[in-house]
Design a protein around this nucleic acid. Structure first.
Lengths: 369, 369
DNA sequence: TTTAGCACTCAAAACGCACAAGTGCTAACC
DNA sequence: GGTTAGCACTTGTGCGTTTTGAGTGCTAAA
């Protein structure tokens, strides 16, 4: 934070920081006069002009056209985020608001992520996203069955993290309680701990053999299990607050807006970026992708900030913010940080810590596939 | 379809229809000359002008400004949709595409609706929406419990329609298999068939009493049940293809676009409109809301077309299309109709009818809350 | 090294103007 | 009566010109 990083004089840093923050605030190119007057620099505009010309040569600033002020380049933002940005402290009110909004009746990961996303969007006024990647190699640690009616039963799959997923299995023949029990036993014996990739024909036959007289259940049941495990590769991404983009002049251009909306529609691409794990983190596990640092071409002039959400040390999702490159970095970073932490805390600690919820109603399990 | 409805002469109807269809196609106000030349009307432009002036007086057409052609008014579209629109037959290729896209590995209502929505959006090039209303008065018809670990169990709630929802219940004390069984019995005795509104204190006490030594499970379990039933009021709505709005010049206005995006964000409002059941249907259960017929103010210049999706005679959701008032009504209506029918068919018939899926893997159950 | 001054550049706004499309109306026509 | 031709009128659109103003780079002086 305080290195002499890259031989930039203290004054240049000051000017760069001020230009960036002014531009973030106003969205207008900032000129030498502005810096002198509004930012109270104890130099003449000419001196500042000289400094800015040098900052431009270094690649930190650019000029939209000859007779305009300077705006930060992507490297400028990068330098700012890495070395110049100051820690932003959320106010107590903000933290309180945030926590109380999250706590209200939220018990499932899906719901928490969803509220967190909405909260993030409304508190920053940028679109927010919530990601639930499903790691490949998902396995079921235990199977249970529940009879539903003559021709169907509910297959309960308990995952290693204690969450559960369910699917209805329809049987071609009437299912008895014994059949149900047998199915559970068979699946537990043959398929627990087995990832989707290892579902081979011999395995199926094992299950059928194990089921004996109830082998007619094998095929439908296994297919359902496979669905759950294979669906894991897809993951889920939701976006909230796209309309907020329109508050920013940089998106008041139909091409750019279309690019953005299209990107939001194609969730898979975004998901890949967030879930790939290839983005280097700055402090606190926060990831910042500025402009074309983002592999998605459409992100020029936009920044994506996100942070993984952990549960018991294991990544279970992520929340993030998308906005113009001139985004309020300190605040957004602080917000995402706090949200992610609150979510983890909420899930790890369980409802026991939340007096309003009473005892023991916590749940980390997610029931939807 | 063939009445003299409202004393409109056959020629006026013809002109109105042609104006509307031309406007739908081009998006430009249509003038008398255009009708004479392109639409081959056997009258002079002056005659057509006279007719159009009268149609304007009747409220079916309007003029953006004095020296422009005519565009249809909302009543114009309404009249068109009610009396003038011709049945559109999807091509066999379209139907085939549609069915095959829906069938592929789709077994859950959520997934089917989702695919249908995406399909609808891409085939019509308008944004599409999928709705899953949850009727108030939801009840659980049967409870089952599955132990998960020492301090938690999975509560399975089988709904009257055969679907199931699950929640994890955390217990303050260790739960045995007997405790689980007792809980299921207690809930089945006291809470099956009881809607959320009737969850009163005496009822809770009944459950506790019934549970005897296991009464510590009552509170956490009941809360989870309540969550499921009460969440029912909210429902779920998803939108796909918003970016397609940008293909239409009527949305190339930031205010309008912002209105639209904002409306899409506030899903509750939209949900109310679609789920209220107050929209009168035209043939085939299709609902059409033109412009300000829609209670949401933001829908000026936009039309919402949707159709409930039924399962065994019972409405379980809806799919729809939103677009400019000048939308390709015949095609959209045909598409929504076919989609809705295909979904119902798929769900009612079950996977048995789908050779590709093999036997008995169908499920209408939905496992997410 | 800093500053004042000045000429220069360039985007955006303001203006004026011609053009084209389409109308309403009147008068003639069948 | 219904239909048509002709003409004056209205009005949005496109286009080139001008004006304005912010901001720069450079030079010369402090």
């Amino acid at each position: 934070m305080k290195t002499t990083s890259g031989e930039l004089s203290e004054r240049k840093k000051q000017i760069l920081k001020t230009v960036i923050e002014a531009y973030i605030e106003t969205g207008e190119p900032v000129g030498s006069k502005y810096l002198m007057q509004k930012a109270q620099f104890p130099f003449s505009s000419a001196t500042i002009r000289n400094e800015m010309a040098e900052l431009e040569e270094l690649g930190y600033l650019e000029q939209p056209h000859t007779s305009a002020g300077r705006i930060p380049s992507e490297s400028g933002y990068r330098f700012y985020v890495d070395s110049l940005v100051e820690h932003y402290d959320l106010t107590n009110r903000e933290i309180a608001e945030l926590k109380s909004a999250l706590r209200s009746r939220q018990t499932e990961l899906d719901n928490i992520l969803d509220s967190a996303m909405k909260l993030a969007s409304s508190m920053t006024n940028y679109p927010a996203l919530a990601v639930r990647p499903h790691a490949a190699g998902l396995v079921v640690s235990r199977f249970e069955t529940v009879p539903i009616d003559t021709f169907s039963l509910l297959l309960v799959m308990v995952m290693p993290d204690g969450s559960a997923k369910t699917k209805t299995v329809k049987s071609p023949r009437p299912v008895t309680r014994e059949a149900c029990t047998a199915l559970a036993a068979a699946l537990n014996t043959c398929l627990s701990g087995v990832p989707a990739a290892e579902f081979t024909l011999p395995l199926m036959m094992d299950v059928e053999k194990y089921l004996g007289a109830y082998d007619f259940l094998a095929n439908p049941a296994i297919k359902r299990v496979y669905e759950v495990l294979a669906a894991g590769d897809v993951g889920d991404l939701r976006v909230e607050g796209v309309n907020r983009l329109l508050s920013y002049p940089e998106y008041c251009d139909f091409d750019r807006l279309k690019d953005m909306l299209t990107m939001f529609e194609d969730k898979q691409e975004l998901l890949d970026v967030v879930a790939s794990g290839k983005v280097p983190a700055i402090g606190d596990d926060i990831r910042v992708l500025i402009g074309r640092e983002n592999p998605l071409g459409t992100m020029e002039n936009s920044t994506l900030i996100f942070k993984p959400v952990k549960r018991g040390g294991h990544t279970v999702g992520a929340i993030g913010i998308i906005g113009p490159t001139r985004m309020d970095y300190p605040r957004v970073i602080a917000m995402i940080n706090e949200l992610s932490a609150s979510i983890s805390e909420l899930m790890d600690a369980g409802a026991a810590h939340l007096p309003a919820l009473g005892d023991g109603t916590d749940n980390g399990g997610t029931d939807n596939g």
